[in-house]
Write a protein that binds this DNA or RNA. Structure first.
Length: 479
RNA sequence: GUCCCCAUCGUCUAGUCCGGUCCAGGACAGCGGCUUUUCACGCCGUUAACGCGGGUUCGAAUCCCGCUGGGGACGCCA
């Protein structure tokens, strides 16, 4: 078989949703796995909702995730343009061809007319079915100058089936199909038509998308048939639901503090690899393995081990997976970790040099799960004076701590080297850390908890350590 | 309502295709403990699932049927 061609076709009507990111990921993995082509196509035919901001946000999000496309906006390709509103002529031409061949027809029924019928059906609790008002008319019946839509002449009997890569064979009866609209009265195509025309002309060989699209597939299969092209293979992915089993809409997700846009994950300090590793296990698995490098994912990915059951999003697990990815050098090299953490540290007003930052980060890497947590955990290294936690101050910086801190200061003052080992050698035999630890920790970090104090002092350096001890001593004596 | 799809711990899942190795394994969360100057990390332990009912079979989480439950869709949205 030739190299497969897959696509991700978002509509720029909002940010890139994590469900969309998962779809993009599966397509991308499939393309990379088989040396295929990953096409990005923008389905911007909903002019009322499409925005330039959202278009940009989606591209940015995909880039942030590292899901690079081989053909599409801003990179071009031989099958462009890759934005549907720039392909209107093609749809019109294709629709005319179908009309000529008697496979589609002009329908002059107005929206108002149909809305009334739809309402009536609803009132009678019956499924609305488009009465074949214009199905059998010919060009002689067309009113001149009146607006019309182009409808597909759907088969009245029989059934349509396709073999889904993850669900197997799916068959639906044709008598359920409406004469669905191909082209709106303004000449803009509707989803099913636009997608099929584009998939045909862009030579897409496999369509992977959310399970909510299986109902569209029979119509699309029929369209391929009418157009005279073989249908591509289809792979539908189970849905990602909110913890309560409802659709993971923005509103629903907010109730559970689940961000739905990829940009929100970026802003919360997630690693793209961490997010992707969580998403990839949603509907796909490789035995019990939970964390994968990008390379492993590409080598392992296959629709045959995809699952069919919908799943519920679990933020705690998502964070846990991110933690694993971020703290492990195998997934996130130290330099990449430092670079990724930097913006979050800078957002707090700090501008440490790389060496200082890196050493500070080394002390918190095990414990912080996101870059946002990392930045918080490392804040006192760069803030002068460190933010002092009230509760910690009240408990630790008391008069009784004065002699302990004084002793620590004396020992430190005579030390030259502040490496953790040197500190250990000089202090551990002289001090009872159970006593000194709590006040010293608050003095040095302003908090009740922190990494080991030897490491903290080492990163802080002698001058800062002594200054902070002095400041704490003053508070303790006064308290 | 109609059509389509799905069904293993609270959650993501392994096992289901090729019935026995599964009194169902892993991970996250929970709980208990160890470690520790604190908080984490780590380690050890533990709670917890084959939706229900019928078949088929010597034997079913695995195959068949029904039920129940859940989801998707029914637009001049995508």
């Amino acid at each position: 078989m030739n190299a497969p061609r897959v696509r991700f076709a978002p509509s720029p009507t909002g940010y890139l949703h994590i469900g969309g990111a998962r779809t993009a990921l599966f397509n991308w993995l499939y393309a990379r796995r088989h040396g295929g082509v990953f096409v990005l196509r923008v389905e911007d035919t909903d002019q009322a909702r499409s925005t330039q901001e959202s278009y940009q946000a989606i591209l940015d999000s995909l880039r942030w995730l590292g899901l690079d496309w081989d053909e599409g906006p801003e990179v071009g390709g031989p099958h462009g343009p890759y934005t549907q509103m720039e392909r209107l002529a093609l749809y019109a031409q294709t629709a005319d061809r179908l009309i000529d061949e008697g496979k589609a027809y002009r329908c002059y029924a107005t929206k108002e007319e149909l809305d009334a019928l739809r309402k009536e059906a609803e009132r009678q609790k019956k499924q609305f079915f488009y009465p074949h008002l214009w199905r059998d008319k010919t060009s002689k019946d067309w009113p001149t100058g009146a607006p019309y839509v182009v409808r597909f002449k759907a088969p009245l009997a029989g059934e349509t089936s396709f073999d889904d890569e993850v669900f197997g064979r799916i068959t639906t009866p044709n008598d359920h199909l409406q004469d669905f609209v191909l082209l709106r009265s303004d000449g803009v195509p509707l989803y099913n038509f636009g997608a099929v025309v584009d998939d045909v002309t862009m030579k897409i060989t496999l369509v992977a998308r959310g399970r909510d699209h299986v109902v569209n597939t029979p119509q699309q299969v029929l369209l391929y048939e009418a157009l005279g092209y073989p249908a591509p293979r289809f792979a539908h992915l189970p849905m990602m639901l909110a913890p309560d089993g409802k659709k993971l809409s923005k509103r629903e997700a907010e109730r559970y503090d689940i961000p739905v846009s990829v940009t929100a994950y970026r802003d919360r300090g997630f690693s793209p690899d961490g997010l992707l590793d969580y998403l990839v296990r949603f509907g796909w698995s490789h035995g019990d393995q939970e964390t994968f490098t990008r390379r492993e994912l590409i080598d392992l990915f296959d629709f045959s081990t995809a699952s069919r059951a919908d799943g519920k999003f679990d933020m705690k697990k998502c964070v846990a997976i991110n933690h694993k990815i971020v703290k492990d050098d195998r997934f996130t090299p130290r330099a990449a970790y430092v670079a990724a953490a930097r913006p979050f540290v800078e957002a707090r007003g700090h501008r440490p040099d790389t060496e200082h930052l890196a050493r500070a980060l080394d002390t918190v890497r095990e414990r912080a799960r996101t870059y946002a947590e990392v930045a918080d955990a490392v804040d006192y290294y760069f803030r002068e004076p460190p933010a002092l936690d009230d509760e910690a101050k009240k408990r630790a910086l008391v008069p009784a701590a004065v002699p302990l801190l004084t002793r620590l200061r004396e020992l430190l003052a005579g030390l030259e080297r502040f490496e953790p080992d040197a500190l250990r050698a000089a202090l551990d035999a002289e001090l009872d850390w159970k006593q000194v630890g709590p006040p010293a920790r608050v003095a040095l970090t302003g908090r009740a908890s922190s990494p080991g104090l030897h490491e903290v002092m080492s990163v802080l350096g002698k001058t800062t350590v002594l200054a902070r001890l002095d400041a704490a001593l003053a508070i303790a004596a006064a308290g």
